[in-house]
Amino acid sequence: MSKAHVTTTINGDVVEYLCEPDQSMLEVLRDNLELTGTKEGCATGDCGACSVSLDGRLVCSCLVLGVEAEGKQIETIEGIADGSELHPIQQKFLENAALQCGICTPGFIVATKALLAKNPDPTEEEARYFLAGNLCRCTGYDKIIRAVLDAAAEMRGAAS
């Protein structure tokens, strides 16, 4: 069978692509669309490096087929900043030294955005539970959790 034609919206842009029906959304993003900010750490849904938002729902893009994106809204790490202005979550990750190697960072930031949309004032425990699907091997999570809580506080402040 030939490739499937998919029309979807990625980071606000209407995007059309052709993909094999068994290609994952992660492969489509990285290989077909050159959106390489979304990372592959395992391709089995166990590390969260490929986290994206699909119709507002946090998912591992390795566990979604490219064809399933038809008519949906996808947000990736490339869509988090407002132009050249960093999102408060990105800024707080930098200020808190919450990345060492940086490979897990895009997934963490996408996941954190989903967390704070759902729960603007998470406790440390809630943040750790929500982000348990994002593996980081460098930081021991301490500075990541601090950045998340710091970003939450900043975003609540900006919202009030």
Binding site: G45, D46, G48, S51, L54, R57, L58, V59, C60, L63, V64, A111, A114, L115, F130, L131, A132, G133, N134
Partner: peptide
Amino acid sequence: IGSTQVQGR
């Protein structure tokens, strides 16, 4: 089952 991400699916 799995992570927040997996639960999304």
